[in-house]
Amino acid sequence: MTGSALLSTWFPEAASTHAASVDEPFYWIYFAAVCFLALFMGLVLIQLRVYRRQDRDQLGAVTGRPNPVFVTLWVAAAMGLALFGFITGLPGFINQTTPPWGAFEIDVTASQWAWEFTYPNGHVADTLHVPVGRPIRLNLGSTDVSHSLAVPALRVNKAAVPGREVQAWFEVTTPGTYALQSNTFSGDGFADMRSELVAHAPVDFGAWMEEVSDIFKGRTLVEVGELLYTRHGCAACHSVDGTKLVGPSFKDLYGYEFDTIEGARVLADDAYIRQSILEPNISVIAGYQPIMASFTGIIDDREIEAITAWFKTLSSKGGAAPDAQEEN
């Protein structure tokens, strides 16, 4: 890095509409502050030289009074600098407080020490993908300690605090991949809490969205089933290790017979699982309450198939899952 680049490059190359409202005030204040400091230090150093004591007992003017004109000018200059800094920085700040209508929304969850970005279609990723030229609104939250989301190239820096929802918004101007990090110390793994923001051209973003929307792409049926289990929050009521929660555990469920609360006997086969997802309270296993909400219209047939395939891998009576057979 050369000396001149060192002096001129304070910021990473700007890639958002917001960047100019940070950089421009910064450079103006920088210019004014350097002049101010040079003036002050110049006056100090010059006076030190000009009024230097020539012989040991020399006594200059012992007392003096402040010059009202100079005092006023000096205070006005300092206050002017401060006010100027405040006013030039104001528009960008106000602009940042209100995300525009129709912004593309992404939920961001920070935790020790990872990022989770959730898209409107339910896709969850650990990198942030956004389209260029469209306002993006981030709803920031944290599951444990305070974090913050910073993307220097966009001049975005917002806190992610547990128990509060904080919003940030930006509009990327240049496609590319930008560093994304936390600026708030969060414990031992803090240095790993880095990710990327990938800004796509609108067309590419559409293609990316379509690709990730298809959860079957690049995944086996069993993997899709497990993904759906985490994505729909099933874990809140159903364990996979045999622990009895609000609902029955998915371990050793498929292929077993159970008593229902009506006293009937039911075999947990493909049809029963399908029924339990779409109309869950028709036939409830004894010992549990009929309180589950229906997933009709949320989970489709193909996904039920995936869930069933995953259940088979969790059960000793499930037999080998179709995917596993292929691999063997």
């Binding site: 002050f40 004591r53 006594l59 003017a61 003096g64 402040p66 205070v75």
Partner: peptide, 24 residues
């Protein structure tokens, strides 16, 4: 930002105290 005023007064006081002194 209001702290600019007292800081300016302090620095002025310093500069004015050096002025016409006999500085060792």
């Amino acid at each position: 930002l209001l702290t600019a005023v007292p800081v300016a007064l302090l620095t002025y006081g310093l500069l004015a105290t050096m002025n016409q002194g006999s500085i060792a």
